[in-house]
Design a binder for these strands. Structure first.
Lengths: 155, 155
DNA sequence: TAGTCAAAAGTCAAAGATGGTCAGAGGGTG
DNA sequence: CACCCTCTGACCATCTTTGACTTTTGACTA
């Protein structure tokens, strides 16, 4: 293998495969030492190889007792729908309540959200809840809906 | 477990669970000795892990015969829980990710949200999703969480 | 009763321990 | 050569641990 990133990637995937739990917890420093590279190399590997689209979920904690946890997740089969909604969100400047509702209902119809989840989210994303000026509302909704899509992309 | 704070947290929660009274009384010095740490470590654990929004109440007394009493607050009535959280939201200026997570998990523990709903909402209310400056984030979170409480209050 | 002292617990800031980010240098490939 | 990955290190953010100093409380003493 030609570069260290690939080697580290393979190593992590191997460990992941061997673990029962679908998840591993590593110490950045340890891995860096094992492969004799700088710690930030590990971030590079994770950012380029263990992304959500590739079916991985990464959490971490800093400070004493810190760790990086990598989890294998199963992607939802409706990636196309999500991609098109994400695309829509990026190009639609006007995210008023009606548009938000449409999106949420669409997600419900496609089986990605329950009725109750739609209600919760709609309430949280409503004009009343957000307050603010219209432009800010649109902006925040876009970001929050995008975060939602990202979460829905796996089970 | 990685760090002493987590260990002490687990220990205290265990003792709490085993006690009949929903409350325990400890001597700071004793706990510190048991885990071989400085006494103020205990304060750290209490301040970071046994917070109001997580549903804990802490009282203490100094001097001879001093103690620290930790009480688990259990609110069987949905309205009581929501009222106390609403109260908390109004009085807590600092609504960072950790606090938001604590609140959502509390709602889960008391049966008002499912695990998945917690994940959805936490994601939507995360730093990453909100972007913005800290103060604005806190503000928006307060409003959105209050909206959530309101919705949850009528079943 | 007032004063003193020792035994708690509290506070806070500095030091320690991790992980994250980012921009620029380095290298391989079409 | 141009471009796209990789690699590196300086600097940043966050959580934990530690210890010096402070405050509170009750018992004992004058």
């Amino acid at each position: 293998m030609r570069n260290i990133s690939d080697v580290i990637e393979q190593y992590l995937k191997q460990v992941l495969k061997e673990s029962q739990a679908n998840a591993i917890e590593i110490k950045r420093q340890d891995i860096a030492k094992r492969f004799e590279c700088v710690p930030s190399q590990i971030n590079y590997v994770i950012n380029t190889r263990f992304t959500v689209e590739k079916g991985y979920l990464v959490e971490s904690k800093r400070g004493g007792g810190g760790y990086i946890r990598i989890r294998r997740v199963i992607l939802h089969e409706k990636q196309d729908l999500l991609a098109s909604l994400i695309d829509f969100l990026h190009n639609q400047p006007n995210l008023n309540e009606q548009v938000v509702e449409n999106i949420l209902i669409r997600l419900f119809e496609e089986g990605l959200l329950s009725e109750r989840e739609v209600r919760l989210l709609f309430h949280v994303l409503s004009d009343e809840s957000l307050g603010l000026h219209a432009t800010d509302r649109h902006l925040i909704r876009r970001q929050q809906l995008l975060a939602l899509m990202k979460l829905l992309s796996y089970r």
